[in-house]
Write a protein that binds this DNA or RNA. Structure first.
Length: 388
DNA sequence: AAAACGGGGGA
DNA sequence: TCCCCAGTTTT
């Protein structure tokens, strides 16, 4: 930790930070606390009007403590995260009861109050009493992750602990100006994260001089601003599998129109065998595919021919393909290549209203129908020379 | 559609 | 103590 880290942030804040927000330039803990709670998960621009209105109506913690819950909720309505408002009200009552209406200056005591965690407690103590305590909100985590090259999701306990240690070490040195420095430092970290070291496009990419930490910043030096902070690891997505039947007669294959809803809704796809029992049994699948083919005529042979994985956002689909070559067809619409078959296999009357739509399509005309990408790829034989 | 967010609350 | 959630905005 460079010894001048805190001083850099303090100086930057004094010259380039924000100084005229409605909750700045006061040491009234009530006003500061109210702003910090409103600013949790809510942007400055959205908070300002609510803040002014709330303060005008309930200017002190005593007034808030005595207000009916309905009024508090009405003043909060539109800000969202309403448990914040309930905690706010509870907290005001506790401050009046336990502390005679005066917020404690000790961050550890503040953090025991409802709605106030460690970071919010430190912010309140720093702004209202100049206490030398570190904040660690999302903005600060982003600044630290980049500046000090911290890999790993900041939501992980180990990473967060490291960052709290950094936050302690980064504080400006104690001194005669500590109180003013802590106000500027705390606001400076927030402003830096919100306006310069933003998530999407940090200002240093355009102009390094915009950031007082750019010459220290590991992420900037190594070109890692886009990958730090490390996003939360996604749970490994589940894998599903299916067996698709490529029923072939000459250059034509049988397609099935999928239901409008669900995966690949409304697209023409290959027929699929009922979910195979695990472990996968190729011979059984081939047998099932032959049986399926018999509904359409006389199958000559069946063979497993391809395997591919398609990745969706929420699962991976392992697609196996079994090719069935038809020696003769029983059910044809007779209109030639590409003609639309109505219903099948069997009569519409067999299956009632839920009759499925089938059709034959020439492999030379794959472009003519809306098809799931992996199915199109499969039929086009991409990377699957053994298919046809 | 997914990630982020700070604190609460349950295991 | 750890982990996950609530509830909303942003990307």
């Amino acid at each position: 930790m460079p010894s001048d880290f805190g001083a850099r942030v303090v100086q930057w804040q004094r010259r380039h930070g924000r100084h005229d927000l409605p909750w700045q330039n006061t040491r009234d803990p009530y006003r500061i606390w109210l702003s910090e709670i409103m600013l949790q998960q809510t942007q400055v621009s959205a908070v300002i009007d609510y803040y002014q209105r709330f303060l005008a109506r309930l200017p002190t913690v005593q007034a808030l403590a005595e207000a009916p819950a309905d009024e508090v909720m009405a003043l909060w309505a539109g800000l969202g995260y309403y448990s914040r408002a309930r905690n706010l009200h509870r907290c005001a009552k506790l401050v009046v009861e336990q502390y005679g209406g005066r917020f404690p200056g000790d961050p550890a005591l503040l953090a025991e109050l409802p709605g106030i965690g460690r970071s919010t407690a430190a912010a309140i103590a720093a702004f209202s009493a100049g206490v030398r305590a570190p904040i660690l909100d999302g903005n600060v985590k982003r600044v630290f992750a980049r500046c000090f090259g911290v890999h790993g999701h900041p939501g992980e306990k180990a990473i967060e602990n490291r960052m709290w240690a950094m936050a302690e070490a980064a504080l400006p040195a104690p001194g005669p100006r500590q109180s003013e420095d802590m106000v500027a430092y705390t606001q400076g970290l927030m402003d830096l994260g919100a306006t310069v070291c933003s998530r999407g496009k940090p200002a240093c990419l355009e102009d390094a001089a915009r950031c007082p930490l750019s010459d220290l910043c590991v992420a900037r030096r190594e070109g890692l601003t886009a990958v730090l902070p490390t996003p939360k690891a996604r749970a490994p997505i589940p894998e599903r599998s299916t067996v698709m039947v490529v029923l072939r007669h000459g250059r034509e294959v049988l397609l099935r129109l999928r239901a409008d809803s669900g995966i690949w809704g409304g697209l023409w796809s290959l027929p699929e065998l009922p979910v195979p029992a695990l472990p996968f049994d190729a011979e059984q699948a081939e047998g099932d595919a032959l049986a399926f083919g018999r509904a359409f005529g006389t199958p000559a042979r069946a063979a497993m021919v391809a395997e591919m994985t398609h990745v969706f956002t929420h699962f991976r689909l392992l697609i196996r393909a079994v090719r069935v070559d038809m020696a003769a067809l029983a059910l044809r619409d007779g209109s030639g290549v590409g003609g639309v078959g109505g219903v099948g296999p069997g009569d519409a009357s067999d299956t009632g209203a839920a009759a499925e739509q089938w059709r034959w399509l020439s492999l030379d005309r794959l472009d003519e129908l809306g098809m799931p990408a992996p199915v199109r790829k499969l039929l086009a034989g991409e990377g699957l020379p053994q298919l046809f």
